[in-house]
C-alpha cells in the first residue's frame, strides 16, 4: 500500500476534492448534477461524499439558533414566493399558509427537541428577575454568592469555593466523635433549596455535633471522605 491516507480506498485526490466541494456547496449546478449521477452508480465515491457530510455537520455547532423577526421573515417569504403566480389557488403545495404552518411546526419540533435533549427550560420571568453577585477578596478560600430575586424581594447568600481558575465545590461534613466524617452534601449556590439531612444521619445530629466544610473537586469528594483542606468547622449548640 502506498496511499498517503488522503486518498485511501482507491479514490483519487481529485475525486476526494470533488466530494468535499459537493458537500461544501462549491460546485456549479452542472457539476453538482454530475456528482449526483456519479454517486448513484459508484458506491465507493458515495461513501466518500457521506463521510464529508458527517465530518462537516459539526461546523454548525459553532452557531446558535435564533428566530428571525417578523420583518426579516416576511422579506424572505417575499423573495421566495412573491413572483410565483398563484394560478393553482387551493393547491396545498402552493399555499403560503400551509408552508407557514409546516415551517412553524418544524421549528417548534426543533425547539422541543433542543429543550428535551439539553434538559434546559426556556428562561422564565422569575429568572429574568434574578440578580447575582460574587463577593470576594484577595486570598479568600471561600467567596460568597449573593442572589437577589426581584420578584419576591428575597436575597440569599451562599458560600462558594473561591475558584482560582478551577471550579471546586464546598462539601459539608458531620464529624462524629469516633469514626469517619459523613457527607451532608454539597453547598450549592445554584440550587434554591435547603440541605435535607437523611433520616439515618438525623439520629446522630444533636448538641455537640461537629460540622466541617472542606474544599473538594467540583461535584464533591470522589472518595466519600474529605479529600481537600477543611476551610471551616464548628460545634453545634442549643440556642
Amino acid at each position: 500500500m502506498m496511499t498517503s491516507g488522503a486518498h485511501s480506498h482507491g479514490i483519487s485526490p481529485q475525486d476526494e476534492v470533488l466530494a468535499a466541494e459537493y458537500v461544501l456547496g462549491l460546485l456549479s449546478l452542472e457539476r453538482r448534477q454530475m456528482v449526483e449521477r456519479r454517486m448513484a452508480d459508484d458506491a465507493d465515491f458515495q461513501r466518500h461524499v457521506e463521510r464529508w457530510q458527517s465530518d462537516t455537520v459539526t461546523f454548525n455547532d459553532a452557531y446558535g439558533e435564533i428566530a428571525p423577526d417578523a420583518s426579516v421573515f416576511n422579506r424572505i417569504e417575499q423573495r421566495l414566493f412573491a413572483d410565483r403566480p398563484d394560478n393553482a389557488a387551493g393547491s396545498l403545495w402552493q399555499s403560503l399558509v400551509f408552508w407557514r404552518g409546516v415551517s412553524l411546526v418544524s421549528s417548534l419540533a426543533a425547539v422541543v427537541a433542543i429543550v428535551f435533549v439539553s434538559g434546559m427550560l426556556p428562561p422564565t420571568g422569575r429568572q429574568a428577575a434574578l440578580l447575582v453577585a460574587n463577593l470576594t477578596a484577595p486570598g479568600n478560600v471561600i467567596d460568597l454568592a449573593a442572589s437577589y430575586d426581584a420578584s419576591s424581594g428575597r436575597l440569599k447568600i451562599t458560600p462558594v469555593a473561591a475558584d482560582g481558575g478551577e471550579r471546586r465545590s464546598l462539601e459539608l461534613w458531620l464529624v462524629p466523635p469516633a469514626g469517619n466524617p459523613k457527607s451532608l452534601g454539597i453547598i450549592n449556590a445554584a440550587v434554591d433549596a435547603d440541605m435535607i439531612i437523611s433520616p439515618e444521619i438525623q439520629g446522630s445530629l444533636g448538641e455537640g455535633s461537629v460540622f466541617a466544610v472542606s474544599l473538594e473537586p467540583f461535584g464533591g469528594s470522589p472518595t466519600g471522605l474529605p479529600t481537600g483542606p477543611i476551610v471551616a468547622s464548628g460545634t453545634a449548640r442549643r440556642l
Binding site: S4, G5, A6, S8, E16, A20, L26, D55
Partner: peptide, 14 residues
C-alpha cells in the same frame, strides 16, 4: 489553495 486545504483536512481526519 482551498482544494489543498480540503485534502489536508481529509488527511487530518483519517
Amino acid at each position: 489553495w482551498l482544494r489543498r486545504s480540503l485534502l489536508k483536512l481529509r488527511e487530518c481526519m483519517e
